[in-house]
Write a protein that binds this DNA or RNA. Structure first.
Lengths: 130, 130
DNA sequence: CCGTATCCAGTATGATACTG
DNA sequence: CAGTATCATACTGGATACGG
């Protein structure tokens, strides 16, 4: 038998623009995005509080990530113009809906990540270390 | 009420090394990884065939992505040393197990991505375009 | 407190040409 | 066919300093 794909004419291309995987990843794959969403899982939280919860994030990246999420409609930002100002962030409904599939990924990691680590060790072993 | 986090001492940090989200993303978030996994969804497939299915991927990136996936134990590589050689790729069980949560993401995209696009348009509008 | 602006280094990706 | 090698570049993220 030939390749399963050459049989029925041609399988449609997995083009960048059409593929759903790519679209979600454009949303959540930047270095801090998933962590920031995760930090808002339990409800309203202030800017400084997010920074304290996420080890190692810089102000620049936190702000940038939050703006992106806000633009994507996943996060809501409420400013109380006191002095000093209070800025509170929370997930929108849309943002919350994303938690579900993200939790599925998280679950996969808990259940399978040790196998990935084993595979890596074995692979690096087989390649004579370095 | 104070912030929900300051109440019980301190919520554990969302440190990079511990967080599951980060771990999966380290695996699937590079530009081509998800697409390559997707291309193997239906079974065994040859190198050249993957290239043809994924619009725009270079040989360098395809090879690099496949090696990574192989190292992570998600992909199996079988070489038939004929002339010219035949190299066949397929998902391992571990790789297949990752398809499930990835499909959950894909489903989310199908159902919600239009909202994201709307949110972006509205946001860009509000910010006076550019 | 909550940012913005600037600069700079490291990494990820891409184009092209060559090989067993 | 299935890669590797090399070079060029664009983007990402971090450090630092300043502003409302």
């Amino acid at each position: 038998m030939k390749s399963p794909f050459s049989a029925k004419t041609v399988q449609p291309d997995i083009s960048l623009s059409v593929c759903g995987y790519r679209k979600v990843l454009d949303i959540i794959s930047s270095k801090w995005t998933a962590l920031v969403i995760y930090a808002m899982e339990d409800g309203i939280i202030r800017y400084g509080e997010i920074r304290r919860r996420i080890e190692g994030i810089s102000k620049k990246m936190l702000t940038q990530t939050l703006r992106q999420l806000e633009r994507d409609g996943l996060v809501k930002r409420v400013i109380t113009p006191s002095v000093p100002p209070i800025v509170e962030y929370s997930l929108t409904r849309l943002g919350e809906s994303l938690l579900e599939p993200m939790r599925a990924l998280n679950k996969w990691t808990k259940e399978h990540y040790s196998l990935v680590e084993q595979a890596r060790a074995a692979y690096d072993q087989g390649n004579n270390e370095e």
